[in-house]
Design a protein around this nucleic acid. Sequence first.
DNA 1: ACAAATGGTAAGTTTTTACTTACGGTAAGT
DNA 2: ACTTACCGTAAGTAAAAACTTACCATTTGT
Lengths: 99, 99
Amino acid sequence: MSYREVLDCLGDPTRRRVFEKLRAGPASVGTLARGMPVSRPAVSQHLQILKAAGLVLDRAEGTRRVYYVDPAGLGPLRAWLDQFWERALAAFKSEAEDS
Amino acid sequence: MSYREVLDCLGDPTRRRVFEKLRAGPASVGTLARGMPVSRPAVSQHLQILKAAGLVLDRAEGTRRVYYVDPAGLGPLRAWLDQFWERALAAFKSEAEDS
DNA sequence: ACAAATGGTAAGTTTTTACTTACGGTAAGT
DNA sequence: ACTTACCGTAAGTAAAAACTTACCATTTGT
């Protein structure tokens, strides 16, 4: 659930594609794999990583497993982004003062 | 300069460390490499990738090359993040209406 | 009870990526 | 002019990560 995990996770194109597919709404593994250039197990593995990073959640639904985005998942990334802005700006200011 | 490049770029721990070091202010390659667990050429290569992603800029300063964060570099990532929120929220709403 | 559908896991392979060493090139100092 | 300092690039290696096939477990439906 740290921003590091999130970045490592979204650093892969296939994983991004899966994640963005889920943005449209919950979907099963098979549905997600359909139309992808990789096999279903590959998608399943990516989903585990997305889950470990806190980006998606899943629920059992009969014989199939439905995944959906965790709204709070991108929180750490956003927080890091904001914090980065602040510190970088502060550093830039103190740089300007030096000259 | 797309969010994809930015994410691919920041998906590597060493690259993140270099980038975060630069947050404190401009620094030369040698300075950045000092105290890092990898060699100077490795840092140099990472800097090229960071530069290609639009995250850092560089200027020649005598025999040394100084790198510094591009304030606009994280823009695409932020935009993607915001857009993701909106769409995911919209999808969530229409999901709720279905039930 | 059996068959079909769905998906996680293991093992192994392939591909990608990061890293190192070696080299050359440029700028500053003596 | 020569030496020193600093850095990018090339080539090759090592390590990591993604992908596939094969298999097993669970659930649903007949």
